[in-house]
């Protein structure tokens, strides 16, 4: 049996490999090439060297959107993971109605980002209007917190499910042993449960981190970068450079931004994986 699988493995790999090549590898390298070109469509690219990259760092909106994204990511990652873990702890206590609560918390995840963005835009604008504050389109502070609240609301349920799975895998005998040794609730959590769910934490932090840096739909629908690009995150900034600008020089610039953006996300998420993995324990 194993021999047969080995023998035919290229055939089983082939469809996925083809799809991966067509859908990822080819466009990736084409994109890399285009970032060194001036172009309108992918067919009429003209090589211009690294000038696109030098212009990226002269673009203030890009640097601002990077700063804004980092500010958002730090708060969002902490907030989402702390609340999700808290909920997971609550919902693994064999309370009545646990399943209903789990479903309710998970549901926001099933709605698309654009729809959520517009719904929250209406909600937040209503509140701002009631308290006499400038609406979202004029209020970068409200835009910043709006994006955080929206994405927290959307992602907490998903992360919660991962934490619940992790918590359920903590062996009962470990907890029992800790209790017999006289550990308090807090000690059981901090010294037994937490180390045992480090793998869940790795996954959740990875997901929230990459989601935060790649955030696009929610940003587009909720604030659209208003006012004056002040709430524009990296992905939206790249999109705007590419599509909202007329002229030959912008497409290549957008592409160069996209390549840098890709590198940045890869580097940050690898660093994070390495850092949290080192804290995982073997059962």
């Amino acid at each position: 049996m194993e021999k047969a699988v080995k023998k035919y493995s290229p055939i089983f790999v082939l469809p996925t490999l083809l799809a991966f090549t067509i859908g990822f590898i080819v466009p990736f390298f084409e994109g890399l090439y285009l970032s060194f070109c001036q172009f309108t469509t992918v067919k009429n690219a003209k090589w211009v060297g690294i000038s696109n990259y030098t212009r990226v760092f002269a673009d203030e909106t890009f640097l601002h959107s990077f700063g804004f994204t980092v500010k958002y990511a730090v708060v969002a990652i902490v907030l989402i993971n702390v609340i999700a873990l808290g909920l997971a702890l609550l919902l693994t206590r064999n309370m009545k109605g646990t399943n209903i609560f789990r479903t309710v918390f998970f549901m926001p995840n099933l709605i698309g980002g654009i729809v959520l963005g517009y719904i929250w835009q209406i909600l937040i604008n209503c509140i701002l209007s009631l308290v006499g504050q400038p609406l979202l389109a004029l209020n970068s502070q409200a835009g910043y917190w709006g994006i955080i609240i929206l994405t927290a609301w959307q992602q907490i349920g998903y992360m919660m499910i991962i934490y619940i799975a992790g918590l359920q895998n903590v062996p009962e005998d470990l907890i029992e042993a800790a209790q017999i040794d006289g550990a308090t609730q807090w000690e059981t959590f901090w010294k037994v449960k937490l180390p045992m769910i480090m793998s869940s934490i790795t996954v959740c932090v990875f997901l929230t981190l990459t989601n935060s840096f790649k955030l696009f739909d929610q940003n587009l629908a909720l604030t659209g970068g208003e006012p004056n690009h002040l709430t524009e995150m990296l992905a939206l900034n790249i999109y705007q450079t590419f599509y909202a600008r007329a002229g030959l020089q912008w497409k290549g610039l957008g592409q160069a931004k996209a390549v840098l953006f890709c590198l940045l996300v890869v580097v940050i998420s690898f660093a994070q994986l390495k850092a949290t993995r080192s804290k995982e324990v073997q059962q």
């Binding site: 004029l138 006012p227 600008r245």
Partner: peptide, 15 residues
């Protein structure tokens, strides 16, 4: 000169 110019004026007008 550009869409960007229009957007800048639009935001300022709204403000």
């Amino acid at each position: 000169p550009s869409e960007e110019w229009k957007n800048g004026v639009g935001t300022a007008l709204t403000m």
